[in-house]
Design a protein around this nucleic acid. Structure first.
Lengths: 209, 209
DNA sequence: ACAAAGAATGAACAGTGATTCACTACTTGT
DNA sequence: ACAAGTAGTGAATCACTGTTCATTCTTTGT
């Protein structure tokens, strides 16, 4: 007998796999899942199309993995932003702002993760993470209700409103993204974030900022 | 010579065209534009696929027309709901409620009109109507600011938040639509509408309902 | 009844893009 | 060096759909 899988090989394969993942995410960040062609991904990764299928069962499986990795990052960021000190409203304000800023920095990424129609396997992943988001915001809203800084309400529905208002306002009109000022900060974007976060906090608390 | 287009023929053609439009909207209402196949539409309409192309330049053109007709109906409804008597907040409350209820009654329709990714010609139509919606809500918000019942704010952005919060909350989670109780009114739906409209009004006015 | 013109048909075509698989190239232990 | 096993290749295949167009069917005026 001969050829046993060695450590060196395992590593090389892992690197190849990671490379495919990275290139795929690049494509998705540019035009969403739907327009990410296997041939293009393979081209960017510098491998043959068939090679993709040695690392992933199918396009859908590849996408599901990409989705899982990317969304977990986002959920972690929101969780982190929610864990600062302060009362519930301050923490929510912080998290919403972080959410909005990140979505605005990569609108196509955000759209792909939040709203783009995707295949069943990917949609399944999305449901998992939708719940993760909902749980985070919900818990904070509940905290706020307990603290008395947020009026009593259906926390689950309210958290959906939050995500909805933000994602649609920032990501929905992808057309305004035409005005791409690649370098540095944009004043309009700051105002946008401010307005939206303000709207959300008022919608939650029923008080002027 | 012989055969001149007669009134009877004109009418028959118009009826055929209308029939195609109706069947197409049926398909769209069921699965969105993307999944509305020409073959399926033709089948439902009881004509050959080629016949579709005697009435419309292309699939895209057919969809653009469907979109125009359907959205105009919705815009008219919102305008109507905004024209009741009362102060700006009351009128907005009425319009948002109507908007939400209609979206909830036909979630797939609403999604297709508001958020589904569509071909360029249809997207062009969508931009027109996005402006129509924005103008309606914006004007009402401006009225409210003038009347003093809504605090000063960027009316355009605020109107985007309104549409975003509603459409995402109602239409975004198309999965929860699993619980389809075909007959009569649903209590959950009423609560959903109530929560969302309340959230929006508070987001706008900064006061508890 | 007939000819002219339009309407309807639907099988064939064409573009797209995921997936396969026979083959080549490489890695490994003896 | 060799055999056994794995990774990589990419042209061919397959599936899916919008669109075309040669042909057939209807309508109309004489």
């Amino acid at each position: 007998m001969a050829y046993r899988e060695t450590e060196k090989m395992r590593e090389r394969k892992a690197r190849a796999r990671q490379n495919i993942i990275d290139r795929t995410w690049e494509c998705v960040a540019q035009g969403g899942f739907r327009s990410a062609r296997i041939t293009r991904i393979a081209g960017l990764a510098g491998v043959a199309t068939g090679t993709i299928y040695r690392h992933f069962e199918s396009r859908e499986d590849l996408f599901a993995e990409i989705f899982r990795l990317a969304t977990q990052r986002e959920v972690d960021k929101v969780a982190e932003a929610l864990s600062v000190s302060g009362n519930a409203v301050e923490r929510l304000d912080n998290a919403l702002r972080k959410f909005a800023q990140r979505a605005l920095k990569g609108p196509m990424k955000a759209w792909a993760l939040i709203a783009e129609p995707v295949d069943p396997k990917v949609e399944e992943e999305r449901l998992v993470y939708r719940k993760a988001y909902a749980s985070l915001f919900e818990q904070a809203i509940r905290d706020g209700i307990a603290e008395g800084c947020i009026p009593d309400q259906n926390a689950r529905l309210a958290s959906t409103c939050l995500v909805g208002a933000i994602s649609e306002s920032l990501v929905g009109p992808l057309s305004p993204t035409q005005t791409d000022s690649p370098q540095g900060h944009d004043n309009n974007e700051d105002e946008l974030v401010e307005t939206i976060v303000c709207f959300c906090i008022r919608g939650l608390t029923g008080t002027r900022s």
